[in-house]
Design a protein around this nucleic acid. Structure first.
Lengths: 205, 205
DNA sequence: TAGATTGTTAATCGATTAACAATC
DNA sequence: TAGATTGTTAATCGATTAACAATC
């Protein structure tokens, strides 16, 4: 039982939206309201919820709290999953702040850098370690996901270290494609490509 | 003639990769090499290049310089397209640096913030304006794309200002979905959803 | 020519949505 | 019951890839 990628993404967004409604007196929502709030198709919403075994009420819609629990049981791991941020420059710090502020099942457990001025420092309670200690710390803190937020020119040389550190998922913010084995779940966000795509469709709309 | 979204994205990546080879003595590359370097299917590469009217040589592959020119003629606008960054905190500054370092047809022409300590300051030669002046500056500097890099809680209130400023494309880094009319080309990057997706597939691989 | 490539159509795959049955 | 909803299958859409013809 593995959900489609897009369904998992939407479940994450449903939950975040529904979280705000959790203490309402009548916490029910219709698929078309959920759809409207996220610019989706109501059928798509119902299909996603069907896939996780939803229990909507034909009159009142979906119970918000039940749905939140159901989504949590579906996409969250039983224990908190730990994340490491590699490179604690402006981007790394922005991500750290962003993620720390969120109530979620993921936690930044360590940050890594090569800069001696940063190693040994704490960033909002999170210790910065030298990149050479990555394998050790990943094991010790049980980190499964790494976020690469270093300048693009160092991407290739860091990829190998990340691979050997034992992380299972890598989110790469550099514009260099990482050639990693298939058992690593790799997501790449390339802002240059994103902007060039936008530029094209803005011009050719 | 409008290219598929994914093709445009890959063209952007082909070009960036090929850029490095431009001064080689024999600047030819095979579709399978290009594919291997970006973890794509060679057929996909050839199909993309076919769509833009490629002229590969059956023996030597594709001429790198010709290809670079062809991609530029296809996806770049004739004039530089201007970008505005809304919110010049850590994320905004990271993006500004990142984009400024790239040789490309897009240029950050202005940054915006509400913080008086930031307004009037220059960030790497780029002036920071108060958000209230957005419409004026967008018109004056001919900005077509806006990048939202403000805290998520301000997203909704800023969306309207952005819309009225006349930008045609918006890249939203907050986790709040923006409900914008369809003529605005909207891309949303939601790091929480991205991480939750990764966590799910790392756990259920 | 033989072999390796490009170019292009047809088949396949994954995701979305239309259609409609079931239910309150 | 009538009307509005959920639940689910079938059709459609967009993108990828298999198959193979054309070419150097």
């Amino acid at each position: 039982m593995k959900l489609p990628k897009r369904t998992v993404q939407r479940l994450s967004r449903y939950r975040r939206l529904l979280f705000k409604y959790r203490y309402l007196s009548e916490p029910y929502i219709y698929s078309h309201d959920l759809a409207r709030l996220l610019n989706l198709n109501p059928v798509q919403v119902r299909r996603d919820l069907m896939l996780i075994g939803s229990s909507g009420n034909h009159r009142k819609g979906y119970n918000v709290n039940e749905l939140n629990d159901l989504i949590a049981n579906t996409i969250d791991s039983s224990e908190v999953q730990n994340v490491g941020i590699v490179g604690i420059g402006r981007l790394g710090q922005a991500i750290l702040n962003y993620v720390s502020d969120q109530e979620m099942n993921l936690k930044v457990a360590a940050v890594f850098d090569i800069d001696n001025k940063k190693v040994g420092k704490e960033y909002g309670d999170i210790m910065c370690y030298d990149i050479s200690r990555m394998s050790e710390i990943v094991l010790e803190k049980n980190i499964s996901i790494g976020i690469i937020a270093i300048p693009s020119e160092f991407a290739t040389s860091i990829a190998d270290i990340l691979l050997r550190s034992g992380m299972e998922g890598i989110l790469n913010f550099t514009n260099v494609h990482l050639d990693l084995p298939k058992h690593i779940y790799l997501k790449e966000f390339d802002i240059i490509t994103t902007l060039e795509e936008m530029a094209y469709f803005v011009k050719n709309k």
